[in-house]
Design a binder for these strands. Structure first.
Lengths: 275, 275
DNA sequence: GCAATAGTGTCTTTAAGACACTATCCC
DNA sequence: GGGATAGTGTCTTAAAGACACTATTGC
């Protein structure tokens, strides 16, 4: 992998010299993960969007909250995506830290992961030059995070109750980008189904949209709209076992359809502004 | 920037050790640029989308075409975006190679640059582990590229005449992602105005959409639609000096409006498929 | 019965697209 | 005049959203 043939020309030699990392100041490569889920608020305010954070134990930013993340293990030929899954698994305690090869994906099997962007501004980490590849992860309600790996304490926090200034490094910016990406992707993809279980009601799906967009939707119109988009949901011909806690009809259960892109899209309401 | 205080605890020591890049196999960080423009085809087939490529002079992939790109200059505290602009400027010959500090942006002032994604799969470069941050650049018709820097020969090629198998490394995949991003962003942003000059006709704007999407649009409906989207274009109260080469009315000139996001969007025609 | 939740009917407004038409220019 | 290019009118269909309504359940 790292061996090369004998340079056979001046330009070849120049290329190899240019490719020798020792000729450059070193750059460290890390991954950070913006992991989002929908869960009941601890303060009893209904369901809302939560992000996974850890509490940093060491300088710099000791005591601050941060996104889970860490180094890409180049020595083990780890791919970037693999590193993101590993960090998430380690720091949520959903897999043994540094254990065997199998299993880190068990409880994360319904996880949707995508690359968000790469952040490499000099000085974003005061110790050295770090280029961080940020990932966005969506999952149905996961068990409470358990500290593991480097994380002093991992916790799901409601995104609207999180003070951006409390986040280490440029993680507030990364989180903001992740949220905007999630909001946009709800419109034109079937991403919302990644936040619910394998069977779900239209109301549960609506709660996902309301939590991510942060505004109430008209239940009736939403219901009809979801059913009218081809391939978004499929009927399972079953219903919930009971109606609402304080009365109400039983809801029909659906599963995710095959469509990944929505036509027509489910657009966010009322955006007069053109930034 | 790289100095740190004395470790004051075990966890601090562990952090610093984890942050020491010498404890890891090194990873090189590069940028690659998918630079797109609309220009007249050399084979006389009208205007179409072109991508900037260089011809590689050295192994591996000697003789293949590749996207312009190169190392991030960490020793100079170069930001990722800066590296992308520098590589583009060097390899298009639009700025002196390695010259003074001023100027590389002169001819690229109307350039629109955004991050596309990061590609770091082990083995994508046979020599060593390389993580490449890909950028997408849009510009109005630029002068012919002149070889400079490491590029043996730089040229604008029509994207539909480029054999993906001819591209080095995983650049075919990066290009495909870039094209899909460009196609999607035309729909809901004012990106198309980045491909034309400061003043343009509705027909020029339509040619951008047709070139990027690769399908003809209805001129009349497009015209009305563009004018109906708030903030997309502004009337300059001027017209072209002459009509068409073989006769025809003079066209009104517009400039880009303030909107960055389009409401409603300009959707691509006829996509029955849901992948 | 009553309150709560699920789901439907219907109407208005807006936008997309097909198609025919008018306007202006170069030769 | 004639062909080419720019721009408009009008009609049909689809979709978004407001709002009222029916259906079914737990208590």
């Amino acid at each position: 992998m790292t061996t090369v043939g004998q340079p056979d020309s001046d330009s070849e030699r120049a290329w190899l010299a240019a490719y020798d990392p020792r000729a450059f100041a070193p750059i460290a490569v890390t991954v950070d993960v913006v992991a989002l889920t929908i869960r009941q608020r601890a303060d009893g305010g209904g369901k809302s969007l939560h992000v996974l954070t850890i509490r940093r134990g060491a300088m710099p930013f000791a005591g601050c909250r941060a996104l889970p993340g860490g180094f890409v293990r180049a020595a083990e030929d780890e791919d970037l995506d693999e590193a993101a899954v590993r960090e998430l698994a380690e720091e949520t305690g959903l897999a043994a830290h540094g254990g065997g090869e199998a299993g880190p994906l068990e409880a994360l099997s319904r996880l949707h992961l995508e690359q968000l962007g790469t952040y490499g501004t000099p000085g974003r980490d005061p110790r050295m030059r770090v280029v961080s590849v940020a990932y966005l992860a969506f999952a149905p309600d996961l068990p409470d995070a358990t500290a593991g790996g480097d994380a002093a304490a991992a916790a799901w926090l409601p995104v609207d109750a999180l003070d951006p200034a409390e986040l280490a490094f440029d993680h507030a910016r990364i989180l903001a980008h992740g949220l905007e990406r999630a909001r946009a992707k709800l419109e034109y993809t079937s991403l919302a189904t990644a936040f619910v279980g394998p069977k779900f009601t239209i109301t549960e799906l609506r709660e996902v949209y309301e939590a991510v967009w942060g505004e109430p939707l008209h239940a009736g119109n939403f219901h009809r709209k979801v059913l009218s988009v081809p391939g978004l949901v499929e009927d399972t011909d079953t219903t919930t076992a009971r109606g609402g806690a304080r009365g109400g009809r039983r809801a029909r259960l659906y599963r995710a359809g095959g469509a990944r892109l929505l036509h027509p899209a489910l657009l966010r309401p009322s955006r007069e502004d053109n930034q």
